[in-house]
Design a protein around this nucleic acid. Structure first.
Length: 190
DNA sequence: CTCACGATTGGA
DNA sequence: CCAATCGTGAGC
């Protein structure tokens, strides 16, 4: 069992500061430092798996270290990393990242504020070109000419962590399972 | 089978 | 404040 197999509220703050690497088949590699996360876990009314297993939330019940990606508001995607032991549905939503490069498919207008290109769950999926086709993918390092997504760095190394309630939810709005790097310019909202 | 709504975002 | 846009799932 690796460290991702812990409860989501343990994994979420530990992911801050780690780098999500996005490798494309054409050789392009994007590196995104995780600066904001949220946890969703069993018994949590905001969790997609709160009621029962469904077609959409299926991968949340699977083993840790896989991607749970879903469509939101019919136009954006949200990226989660599954945690906990198999059979226990839990995940960490990646809410904001800081990119090392601004990909060419980002509109010129947004390039003017490079630190905001990954400042939100829908925005970072656009920047990293992650969509529902990646749902269920394992985090896995690949060669330079393959498509893949994986994590680099050590968990739990970030110091200035701020904890608050989660954003954009109604149920479970009082649960303080959001964490971000204090003062970081790529955090989605303050 | 239907239909209200959502872990969002950008623009009025 | 409000619209865009569509898959999902709760409830009939």
């Amino acid at each position: 069992m690796d460290w991702l197999s812990q409860p989501a509220p343990v994994v979420a703050p530990a992911l801050l500061g780690m780098v999500l690497v996005r490798q494309f088949a054409d050789g392009l590699q994007l590196r995104a430092q995780i600066v904001e996360t949220e946890a969703y876990a069993p018994g949590d009314p905001a969790c997609h798996a709160y009621r029962r297993q469904t077609k959409r939330n299926r991968v949340m019940f699977g083993p840790a270290g896989h991607l749970y990606v879903y469509l939101i508001y019919g136009m954006y995607h949200c990226l989660n990393i599954v945690t906990e032991a198999e059979g226990i549905p839990a995940a960490v939503l990646i809410r904001a990242v800081s990119l090392n490069l601004i990909p060419e498919w980002i509109p010129p207008q947004k390039r003017c504020q490079p630190e905001r290109v990954g400042a939100g769950p829908g925005l970072l999926c656009q920047a990293l070109r992650i969509d529902c086709s990646h749902n269920g993918w394992p985090l896995r390092q690949v060669g330079e000419n393959q498509e893949g997504i994986w994590l680099e760095g050590s968990p739990g190394c970030q110091t200035s962590i701020v904890q608050t309630t989660r954003i954009g939810i109604r149920q479970g709005a009082d649960i303080p399972w959001r964490w971000y790097i204090g003062g970081h310019p790529s955090v989605s909202r303050y």
